[in-house]
Design a protein around this nucleic acid. Sequence first.
DNA 1: CGGTTAATTGATGTGGGTCAAAAGCAGTGG
DNA 2: CCACTGCTTTTGACCCACATCAATTAACCG
Lengths: 237, 237
Amino acid sequence: MATLWSCAGCPNGESGFCRVIQENSEAKFPNEKPLWIRHVVIPAGRQFLFRRPAPPELLVLCEGWAFRFIQLPNGGRQILNFLLPGDLLSVGSVFNEDNHFAAEALTTIQVCKMQGEEVRKQLATNPAAVVALAKHCLIDLKMLDEKITILGRYSAEQWIAYLFLHLIARIKDRKVIRDESYSFPQRQRHIADALGLTPVHVSRTISAFRDQAIADLSNGVLKILNVQDLEQLGSIN
Amino acid sequence: MATLWSCAGCPNGESGFCRVIQENSEAKFPNEKPLWIRHVVIPAGRQFLFRRPAPPELLVLCEGWAFRFIQLPNGGRQILNFLLPGDLLSVGSVFNEDNHFAAEALTTIQVCKMQGEEVRKQLATNPAAVVALAKHCLIDLKMLDEKITILGRYSAEQWIAYLFLHLIARIKDRKVIRDESYSFPQRQRHIADALGLTPVHVSRTISAFRDQAIADLSNGVLKILNVQDLEQLGSIN
DNA sequence: CGGTTAATTGATGTGGGTCAAAAGCAGTGG
DNA sequence: CCACTGCTTTTGACCCACATCAATTAACCG
């Protein structure tokens, strides 16, 4: 898996996870000069991206968990997705477009700020890179179609199973896992906000998973007890 | 609004609606030779795109209504969105990727088949066109984020109001409308399949709209009786 | 005119929401 | 070490939006 551009050389990026776009195609920027400006540390719980103005820099999450969300007029919020190290905050910001969402740190995070203008300049001269970017969007589109299907047709139990499986797959992608035990820093209200449930019902459903020995989420750690059952519940087909 | 490429010159395309990508940027293919192969007429109710294989051609809807959907193992289906004249069937097919969805004609439709290979060749030499394509994806991504928010947080009443407003905006974009009366060929089961409801509940909700003089959908025609109330219900903020 | 499909209406069931209280679990400060 | 505070999770009682099942009516069509 080649990385299109990365900030692997930046001060805190030793994990090498700052790949923005993962591609099979070998599109790479010809020059190797660093595109990042600086790393920023943001404490857990802090909102660091707001709806209105497009930030001049391109943000990449380098360490920790965050999430994108839309604030609702009635005080609630819909979490759009969770972000893991290596995720671009918003593909739209590549083109300097305004965000339609906000973002908040779930744990203490490190964010790498890249020079948007510089990236844009390089993209303009590198069609293959733009193609990779477009394909990156397509993956997201497919994921969202899938998510809509799940939300539209499945039950709370299945939604949570899907969320677990989905996040596990992403974590596995960047970490070696032993004994099916995953670090899961989000509170039950985050799961509720992501799936359109109440924290109360999330608690009940997760308790049911525990009782049925399917999965156990407590103290920020998710343990998968029965993969088959979980997949039975949470896979599209 | 410039069109990136179009089949406006093709036999049945006199409506000029076969714009695939609408952009403010003036990206255009340099040569004007037609990219389309031929037009195909498909009767209402026929499924014309299947999940597995990527069709070699690029499909553009030129006339009529269609919809994309995902078939569920239990026999149900989730409608992902409705397609109007000018819509590209799948952005993914530009890159010859497999579909994760299927598509069906809602009315009798006309589809323009473009030479995928030729389009791809032209894209390779035209970075601005790829950028336009990527931006097109971004619009879709934003729309899907919005849809997830609506589905996650709102009620059936609000979903239907949103769907009405959303489709009306798209119809208005391509037709002159008199007296807030729109052609709406989908049956109540399509609305149900799009929103994750049962036809029964859709019927009740639409009846309630009629009773409250908000909107009236019958015989394939949607009449908006009170825009304010509808927007109150169906807008994100 | 009968046959088919869509829309409506009614009766009843249930998944998940709402409200409220309790219990677990930091962190903080005396 | 304990009391105090704030946050999260759990649990219980009750409610409602929407599903399910079933029957009736309306629209369409050869």
